[in-house]
Design a protein around this nucleic acid. Sequence first.
DNA 1: TATGAATGAGTCTTCATTCAT
DNA 2: GATGAATGAAGACTCATTCAT
Lengths: 219, 219, 219, 219
Amino acid sequence: MAEIPEKKAGKKKVKTRIKSSTVIGRRRRQIIEGAIKVFSAKGFHNATVREIAEEAGVTMGTLYNYISCKEDIIYMVYDHIGKIIRGDVEKAIFGIDDPKERLKAAVRQNLISINQYHDIVMFIDRSMTFVDRVSLHEALERETEYIELFEGLLRDYFKGKEVDETRIQLAADLLAYMPVIVTFRRWSLRRRFKSMDEAMKGILDFVLHGMEFVARKGS
Amino acid sequence: MAEIPEKKAGKKKVKTRIKSSTVIGRRRRQIIEGAIKVFSAKGFHNATVREIAEEAGVTMGTLYNYISCKEDIIYMVYDHIGKIIRGDVEKAIFGIDDPKERLKAAVRQNLISINQYHDIVMFIDRSMTFVDRVSLHEALERETEYIELFEGLLRDYFKGKEVDETRIQLAADLLAYMPVIVTFRRWSLRRRFKSMDEAMKGILDFVLHGMEFVARKGS
Amino acid sequence: MAEIPEKKAGKKKVKTRIKSSTVIGRRRRQIIEGAIKVFSAKGFHNATVREIAEEAGVTMGTLYNYISCKEDIIYMVYDHIGKIIRGDVEKAIFGIDDPKERLKAAVRQNLISINQYHDIVMFIDRSMTFVDRVSLHEALERETEYIELFEGLLRDYFKGKEVDETRIQLAADLLAYMPVIVTFRRWSLRRRFKSMDEAMKGILDFVLHGMEFVARKGS
Amino acid sequence: MAEIPEKKAGKKKVKTRIKSSTVIGRRRRQIIEGAIKVFSAKGFHNATVREIAEEAGVTMGTLYNYISCKEDIIYMVYDHIGKIIRGDVEKAIFGIDDPKERLKAAVRQNLISINQYHDIVMFIDRSMTFVDRVSLHEALERETEYIELFEGLLRDYFKGKEVDETRIQLAADLLAYMPVIVTFRRWSLRRRFKSMDEAMKGILDFVLHGMEFVARKGS
DNA sequence: TATGAATGAGTCTTCATTCAT
DNA sequence: GATGAATGAAGACTCATTCAT
C-alpha cells in the first residue's frame, strides 16, 4: 500500500515578536478563530484588523505582536484549515485496506470537510490574491502534497491496470478540488435540492463515476 | 428537440444619467473593456475607479455618468462575459442534431470559453461578494438560464432512459461549472501538464464520463 | 565679471494628480505657507499632515492630490526657501561693480536672509534626513549652484592674486553656510548679545576677515 | 593663566529606579553605546526603543528601569559626548604654555573631535528639539561652560591688546561651533576635497584667521 | 455631456510605555 | 533587578464619490 506522503515542514513562518512558544500557540489559536469568524462574514478586504482583534479577544497591539501584516492572517487561516481537512481525510481512511474503499472514503470525506468549512474555503479561495509570492508558493506546495495523497490512493486502486500516469495526476487534482464547487455553487444547489446532503451525494457519484475515465483511452 | 430557453430580459439595469442610447452603448463598451483589463490584472478591490477610467479612455466624471457605483462595473462585466460565453456555446451546437454530439459540443465549448476568459471568470468569481442583493439575484437568474441550457441538452441525451430529474439538474450544474476548475487550479495544472490543452482534454473526458452517472442508480 | 551661474531646471518634480498648472501653483503656495508655519513650530516629525492641511486651508485629500508623501513637503519648502534666499542675494549684488563690495554684499545678504528665515532653515537642516535619495541629490545640486555663486564672487575678488583654487571652493562653502550657525546657536547668541543685529555684525566681520585666508599660504 | 572653569555638577539627573550605583554605571554605559549606534544610523525618531535595547544588550523592561522616557536617552548621549569632547580638548592643551599655541591646539582638537564624532554630533543637533525644557536648559549650561573654556583661551591670547569683550564672546562661540559645519556640509566637502583632512586643514586656517577680527575695529 | 478638483471617512500599522511574574 | 507580553493612542495615506464649471 502506498505510503501517505510525509508532511514536510513548511518553510514559511509568520514572523512574531513573541518568544514564548506556548504563548504563541495560544494566541495564534485565538487569532485564527477570530479571523475565521470575521473573514467568513465579510471577506478579507472588508474585514478590519480591529474587528479581527476584537473577535479574537486581543488588542490591536497584541495582534500585531503575532503577525507582521494583515495578509499574514490569511496564510495562518489557510494553513490551519488545510491541516484540518487533511487530518480529517487521513482519519477517514485509517484502518481501511481495500483500495477502492480507501479511495471512496477519501473522496467522500474530502467532500464532507470542504462542505463543512465551505465559508472558510470560499474566503481562502477569494483571498489568495492578497498573499505574497513566498506564502503563495508555500501554499501551492501544501496543495501539491494534498493532491499527492489522492494520487497515491488512485495508483493503489488502478494497480495492475494499464493507466496513463498523466491521467492519474489529473484525476487526483479533480478529485481533490471538485468539491470546491459546493462552495461557489452553494446558492444554486440549495435552491434546487431539498438538502445539501442530497446534492453532495450526487456530486460524490459524479466524481466517483468520472474517476473511472483514468482507466480508459483518451476520447 | 428541446428549445433553447429564451433569454429573458434582465430586470437589473445599471443606472445612468445619460439619455442618448447610442452614446451609452459606446461608452459602456469602453468601460467594460477597460474594466476587464484592470480587474483581470489587479482584482476588484485593488483596482481603482481612476485606473479603470483611464484604461477606458474616459474621465472619472464621465465614468460616473454611466454607473452609480464601483460595484456596478462588476455587474456590467459579468453580464458581458456571460453573454459571450453563452453565445459561444449556442454557436457551437448550432446545426448539430445528434443529441450526444450536441451535448459534447456544448460541454467542450463551455470548457474552451471558460479557459479563454479564465482571468475574467476568476475575477468575477472573486468579486461577486461585492455586488448588491439585486444584482446578485439577477446574476443567479442568468446562471440558472445557462444551466437550463445544459439541462435541455441532457434531457435530450437521456431521452427514453429512466433517469432521475434531480440528477439531470445536478449534472447540468456540474457540467456548466466544473470547468471553472481550470481557472483556480490553473497554476497547479500548468505545472503538471505540458500544455493547458492536454489538461483540458483530460478534464473533458472526466466530465463526459462522469456525466453518465445520471443514468445509474445512486451508489 | 563672472556670470551668475544659470539656474538649471530641477529634475526632481513632486508628483501631482492635478492637471491645471495654475491650480497647482496656487495650491502649492498655500501648502508651502501652511507647512512652513507648522514645521517651524513643531519640526517635521511632530507635525501631522492633517495640521499642515488645515493650516494651508485645504483638506487632507486635496493635499494628497499635490504630493505623494509627507516627505515631499520638505522638499517643496526647501525648494521654495532656497529660491528666495538666492533671489535675495542676487538682488543685493545687482548693480554693484566693485568685486569687494559685491562679495561683501552677497555675504551680508546671505547672513541677513538666513537669519530672517532662521526657523525654516533650522527645520530644513533637521529634516533633510527624511527626504529620499533622489530629492537629496537634487537638493545637493541646488546647493552646489548656490555655492558656485560665491565661488564666482570670490574669484573676481582675488583676481590677479595668486590663490589656491581649493581654498576658493572651501571659502565659498564656508561663506555660504557659516551663517547657519545663527540658527542653531541662536539661544546662546541671544543670551549674550543685546541684539541679534549686533551678533550678526560680529559674525559678518568674522567671516569677511576669515575669508582672507584664501590669499595666504596654508598654516 | 586663566583657570579652566570648574565642571559644575549638572542638576539634571535622568531618573532611575535602580539603587546600586555600580549597576547603574554599567547599564548606563551599555545603553549609551547601544543608543549611539542606533541613533547614528537612523536618527532619533526612526530609532525604536526596542532597537536600542537590543543593541545595548538589555531588555525593554530593563532599559526602562534606567530611563523614564525615550528622550532621556538623547540627554544621556549628549552628556556623554560632551564630556568626551571637552576632555579631548583639555588633554590637547595640557602642558602647553604659549597662549597662541594653547588656543590653536584647542581649536584644532575641537575640530578633530567634532569630526571624529560627526555622526553623533549631527544626531544630537537634530534631536535637541525633542528634549524637555529642563534638559535643554542643562545642556545649554554645559555648552556655555565649554564656550567659556574658549573665552579663557582667547582672553589669554589677546591679553594686553585692546579688545572688545563682546567680540571675545562671539569669537569663542564661533570657534567652538563652526566645526559643526563639517557635520552638515560633509557630503559637499567630501565631493570637493580629496580627503576630509584637507578640508579640515582649510577650515582650521579659516577659523584661526577669522579669529583675528577680535583685535580689529568693527567694519 | 464632459471634466477633474475637492472631499473626508476609513484603515493599517507603529511604538513608547507599563506591569505582572 | 530583570523580563517581555500587552496595551492603545496616534498618524500617514487611499480612494470612491460629488459637483461646480
